[in-house]
Amino acid sequence: MKKKWLVLGSAIGISSVVMVATGISAMAGTSGYDAYKSALKNTKTVSSVAIQAEAQLQDNGKVLVDASGSAKVNVSAKTASGSADVTADGTKQSLSFYKQAGGAVLKSSASDVFYVKTQNAKEKRSKPKDDASEQQMSQQAETVIDALVGNLKDYVAVNDQTDGSKEISVQLDNSQLPAVVNAIAPIAIKQATKEHKNENRNSGEQAGEFPFQENVIKSAVPQLTQDIKIEKVAVKANINASNYIDHQEADLTVSGKDDSGAAHQVTLHLQADLSGYNSTTPDTIDLTGKNVQQIKRDIGKHHGENG
């Protein structure tokens, strides 16, 4: 009889110790997910940064759209400057932009006109942020995101380098994505590629309209209508020794068929390099004596999605 209780007691003892130990090690967060999270939070605190970004869209290996750009951003002063090149369907369009005290300035390489969007008083008077409540909000959001990510966070691999930097990578293929994402993504993709069909805006230069043809980009994308499936999502990031993200890239592969039944494999590649933390000064432009035109439409609305 005594032996039975001994066995039972030791079973309970050992298993509870192991359970607590493994639970704590799971909670301690040595995963790449937590490393990335902390670097992301740290990177958010920089006051200025220089960004080099590139985006590429391919269909069955053929490059459809290629965009690259660089920007200098000062978060605390709310100023920025940069330039971007977009190549779609063999036509290249370049533009440069400045966000400075007087407002936003856009210039296309195709013309000498500077397009200016003056900041109205309403936008200028931004609300003073309540730091404490914002922090609490983000804390709660973090818990919710952690719970949603759940066990997927163990997918994030971390590779420590000798110079103190870290390589973070995660790759999910179709069967590893949450069922909800798998169910909703095809509908979203179908909608996103369908929209431009009806939009037949004439691209003639109207007064006050910025000469940038986003239609070229949209019509280059194949319209997927059936068997749409996310094949693969891969994200990579480098975190430098001072816990800033200095390189980030993402790949998304979607497969599907268009109306004629032809199979497409569309891949989107995004990458960004960050440098000059807290030591970047955005360029400014002096508009005196330049050909300036006021913009009537809200530009940010229709080319914001081009990256």
């Binding site: 607590v20 639970g23 799971a26 909670m27 818990t143 919710v144 952690d146 759940g150």
Partner: peptide, 10 residues
């Protein structure tokens, strides 16, 4: 786990 992330581990 949506309220406290520590619960998920145990």
């Amino acid at each position: 786990p949506f309220l406290s992330s520590a619960v998920a581990a145990f």
